[in-house]
Each structure stands twice: as C-alpha cells, then as structure tokens.
Design a protein around this nucleic acid. Structure first.
Length: 568
RNA sequence: CGGGGCGUAGCGCAGGUGGUAGCGCAUCGGCUUUGGGAGCCGAAGGUCGUCGGUUCGAGUCCGACCGCCCCGACCA
C-alpha cells in the first residue's frame, strides 16, 4: 500500500474523549472512529488488525476440529423464550419488533440458534461430539460502554459451542478449547492467562476467563504469589482464619442505639462493637421476593457471589419500602435473629461466630451476644464476601494480590442448561434419549484489538506484535523527491511485496520527521529507511519499532532480512 | 439509573458582566526548506448540539430535550 493513496487519518493530539491508552492510540493512529456511544467504525488499518487476529483464531479453531457457521444476528423472540433467556436477561438484550409487530432481538450470543440446529438435526450419539463456531457481530445494550473497543454495544466475537454425549466429553471439549485459547493469545502476542470465574447469567456449572492485565480493564483478578491460584474477584476466596469464640453465655440482649444506622457509627457508640464483631444484614429482592444476606461487619458483599448463591440473576438491593415491609425496620437496624419468613444466606466467615452485634429489626435498637448458628434460624451458608488484597491464599496461605485486568475470553461448561430447556437430545447407546452436554467458548475479537494495544505501546505510539500488525514493514524514503531514493524505495517496495509481505510505502511528500512520527504512531514492527547517508553505500537502515535498534544492511539483503524477522 | 464534566472550524481549545465569533495544529495555493511532527506569504473553512423563551439584539441569560465522556451501579 502506498501511504499517499491510503486512508490513514492520523491525529497529532490526543482526542479529548478518550481515557484509556488503547482508545487514544487507536484513534490517533487512524484505526477507528466513533459513531456513537459504544459504536465504532473500523478504518482500513483497524480492519487489517482484526483480520489478522481472526485468521489466527480460525487456524486454531480448525486445529481442534471446529467447523465454521454463519448465523443470523436478528433472532425471533420465540427462540429466546424457549431457552428462558428472554425473561432472564434485562435491558442488556436489544429488543425490537418487525413490521408485523413480532418480537425480535439482536443476539448477544448464539446459544439458542446453535442449540436449535443441534436439536433439529442431531439424532444419534454417533454424531457427537461436535464443535461449531462463528465470528460475528454481537449486540449488548451496555449500561456504560467505555474505553473505545474495550466495551462496545456492538462488537465482534468468536463464539464456539461444543456438543457432547456426556460430561467426560464436555471436559475434553472444554480443555481443548482452553489449550487452543492459550495458543491464540500466545500467537497474538499478549500474556493472557486462565482464571476461575463466575458463570453469571449464562447458566452452567463452571467457567474460566482468560485475562490480560491492564489498568484499563474492568475485571478485578485475584492471584496468589505463592502458587498458581488465580480467580476473578467475583469468584475468588481466601483462607478463612478460624475464630475461636467463647460462646455466648446468655441469650441475645436488646439495647437502645438511637440514631445509629451504620457499621462505623456502631463501632463508636458506647456499648457498640468493632466491625468484625458486627453482622451486616442486607435485604435483596429476587423474582421470588425478598431475602436476607449476612456478611461480617468489616466485609463487603459481592453481588455476583450472591447471584451465584441464590441462583437468581434478577437479584437487586431492596428499596427502603421493601425493606420495611420485609422486616419492619429501616436499613441500619436490620438483623436475622429469629427471622423465619425470608430465606437467610450467611457468609462462611460468620460460621461459629458468637458474641456478635446486629440490628434488632426495630429502629434504634440492636442486639448483642448473638450466636450466629444458635440465633439465626435456617441458615443457608454461602460464599458472599469480597476477598481483599493480602489475605492468605486458600491453597497455600501466601498473600493474595488483586489487580485490574481485561477479560479477553470466557469459556463455560453449560451442561444441560440449553439442551434441556430447548429439548436438544440424542439417542444414546442404550437407545434412550439423553440431553446433549454443551459448552460455550467466547473470545472477544475487537476487544482483543484494544487488549493488544493496551499491552503493546510506548510513548511514541503503538507497537504491534508482528503477528497482528496492519503491515509487516514500512518503507520510508527520507526524501521522495530525490530520484535515487525514490527508485531504491520503489524497488524495495516491489520486491518485498513479491516476497509475500504486507508493505506500506510512505511515498508522501512530507518531511522525514512527520513520516517517522507517523510510522511510530501506527506501530509497524519494522521500518526500512531509505536515506542519503546509507544509500550512498548501497545500504538501507532497518529499524525495529519495539527496541528502536537500527542497523545498516545492504540493499540486496533487505528482503531476506525482513522476511527472516517477520518469520511467518 | 445515581454523581460529575462537556458540546463553538477536521483535531485541541478561547470567547468577564448580552452587541453578530477567534487562536494553535491540520487543510488549500505559492516560495523557501528537507534524517524525528519546519519557516514565511496568502486562502478556504462555523446551522456556536436541538427546540423554545427573555431581549431592540443571545455563543453568552432562562427552560426543555438530545448527544458524548468520566466515576459508581450493572454486565458471557
């Protein structure tokens, strides 16, 4: 490609509407432009990067025997009602009606369509296993799109689905996907690794995320310095330090706490208690009605853990009115002692605790000397608390670390969730119908673009790994008007292309400084500079973007040298 | 949805107390220049987010709406 004829609208200044580095650089480098909140046009340079990532993904998918499909993105509501997700998912699902007033939606993933095909076409266990995939546009009406391609409302995703006869088969499909993903990230050039995750609204038993550390990320990931434990904060746990409690002598004792409505206030209050000796009682509403969640006073509830524990994706904090209707008191005076008419989920950290202080379900009163297991009826134990930095690892006891990360992929053991709701069964060996055991495996293609940009840049601009760079090499004549330079650059351009390389020839009539800055900004890994200094010796300068290390090489060796370094 | 910020030329911004819009960069023409975002001369480019109101007069004041960004909540 000749730069003079290419559409590469680079910007000198950072656009005001950007915060994340990847966002700024992709904008400045002319890779993309914004259309609306969470909606992006990919420009030619951006498309080149996406295509290269896609190619790697295709190759690794085919390597595990996955077959590519092309499915609609516009789905009839009926399909989503069959799986139950039509009602289960909130406003995140884009819904619309067609001219006949039929309900439709724009797919956020493709479990329903794939499961329907499997249901309609696969009859026998002999047809299993299958792995099907596609790379297509997904839609999600995110509450807050952000950071450019990192979280859009319309984005590209590779999603694959495995169909197995049994759980052992699912295990195999799951692991070959995980292995394929590791290869993909290695080839794409980022350090991404696997962590335990919550399945959230997807249903299914187990899931793993692949994450790439970045301050621009939205996930918090917990890792252990001592062993290989790694989990999303929504899933992570730590070693609970067992607490020996003397055991409360007497029954809970009610005492007045006028105006005391917070954990902190109760700590200060004469006759109160330190946060660790309090019970935080939270009322949440589900589709089935209100329930109580208890964590220790100094712990934070993790709502995703609460969703996992209760199995209700509609879970939300109760309003003041709902709280009063459920317990007869306001937030700040709530407790679970003697509560029998709502389900009570209790965090593990409260196991065996006594001498605790909690609200009395009467404004202005609390209870002390509460023994959790003795005084709270019908406890449902659960992991509800949020792990904190520095807590001991549950596996090895070493301190845990909490860092920000980008979720670049998420893989799920769906199990029977979709096959049972949608009736996807096969005849097994014994001639009995059994539901297909499914898995689903997503990898964000456009998100990967920004994840790579986050990981691969410096103060001058992007530094693409050779595998995903929009071009393999850029040829920069210092002076286009100089006949010798122009001829040498043209010849290099032709022979590099001849050698099958993607080449950008900066034939613009610009000052060298401009060309160098632009080349650095768009991040092409190799630059061949054709200038008077070396050309006089029959040489060109080869410079690596990443290290800025340059060397003079004979003109006739340039193609071979570039090819060697690109190693494709 | 809660909190905060912003909307004026392609990009970044300025326009006390109302008087008909400007700067830098980019763009176009010319000359000079040419190894890390050159200089000079000239030119082009604006429904000031939208609608309504106040006023002789609104970029500026008032109201409503729309859009975008950030924090939080939320999220395969």
């Amino acid at each position: 490609m000749r730069w003079s004829r290419a559409f590469i609208p680079t910007l000198r200044d950072d656009p005001a509407d950007s915060d994340a580095v990847s966002h700024k650089l992709l904008l400045r480098g002319g890779f993309m432009r914004q259309v609306g909140a969470g909606l992006w046009s990919l420009l030619p340079l951006g498309v080149r990067v996406v295509r290269r990532i896609e190619r790697i993904v295709h190759e690794e998918m085919r390597a595990i025997g996955a077959q590519e499909f092309f499915l609609p993105t516009l789905h009839p509501a009926e399909l989503w009602k069959q799986s139950g997700r039509w009602d289960k998912i909130d406003e995140t699902l884009f819904r619309l009606r067609d001219r006949k007033r039929s309900e439709m939606c724009l797919a956020m993933t493709h479990e329903e369509v794939f499961t329907a095909i499997a249901r309609d076409e696969i009859r026998s266990y002999r047809d299993l296993p299958q792995i099907w995939y596609q790379i297509q546009t997904k839609f999600r009406d995110e509450l807050r799109p952000k950071a450019g391609l990192l979280r859009g409302r319309e984005f590209q995703m590779k999603d694959s689905y495995s169909f197995d006869l049994d759980w052992e088969g699912l295990e195999r499909s799951f692991e070959i996907h995980a292995a394929a993903y590791e290869k993909i990230f290695e080839r794409v050039g980022i350090a991404a690794f696997r962590v335990e995750a919550s399945s959230g609204a997807m249903g299914g038993s187990e899931s793993c995320e692949f994450i790439s550390y970045s301050d621009a990320g939205e996930d918090w990931v917990v890792t252990c310095r001592g062993c290989d434990y790694a989990a999303n904060l929504e899933k992570a746990n730590s070693a609970l330090v067992p607490v020996e409690e003397p055991g409360s002598a007497g029954a809970p004792e009610r005492f007045p706490t006028p105006g005391i409505r917070t954990i902190e206030a109760l700590e200060q209050f004469p006759g109160g208690a330190p946060a660790a000796k309090q019970i935080k009682s939270l009322v949440y509403c589900t589709s089935e009605g209100p329930l109580l969640l208890l964590v220790r006073g100094d712990d934070e509830l993790n709502e995703v853990k609460a969703i996992d524990a209760t199995g209700d994706t509609q879970l939300r904090p109760a309003s003041d009115e709902e709280i009063r209707a459920a317990l007869g008191a306001s937030a700040g005076s709530l407790g679970a002692v003697g509560v029998t008419d709502l389900p009570v989920y209790v965090d593990q950290a409260l196991r065996g605790r006594s001498g605790m202080t909690t609200g009395a379900n009467e404004d202005g009163f609390h209870l002390r000397s509460v023994d959790v297991e003795r005084d709270v009826p019908e406890i449902r134990w659960a992991d509800l608390r949020t792990v904190r930095e520095g807590e001991p690892c549950a596996e090895c006891g070493k301190p845990l670390e909490v860092r920000r990360a980008i979720e670049v992929a998420h893989i799920f053991k769906l199990g029977l969730f979709y096959s049972e709701s949608m009736g996807a069964t096969v005849l097994g060996r014994e001639g009995k119908e059994v539901p297909i055991v499914m898995g689903s495996y997503g990898i964000g293609i456009t998100r990967l673009v920004s994840a790579v940009a986050e990981a691969c840049h410096d103060e001058l601009g992007l530094v693409w790994p050779a595998s995903v760079s929009p071009f393999d090499v850029i040829v920069t004549p210092v002076r286009t008007k100089d006949e010798a330079q122009e001829r040498a650059a043209e010849e290099l351009y032709a022979s590099l292309r001849e050698a099958g390389l993607e080449v950008l020839l900066d034939d613009r009539d610009e000052r060298p400084g401009v060309k160098f800055k632009d080349a650095d900004l768009i991040g092409v890994p190799l630059r061949l500079t054709v200038g008077p200094r070396s050309l006089a010796k029959g040489k060109v300068e080869l410079q690596e973007r990443q290290t800025a290390a340059g060397s003079e090489i004979p003109l006739e060796d340039a193609v071979e040298e570039v090819r060697r370094r690109v190693q494709r």
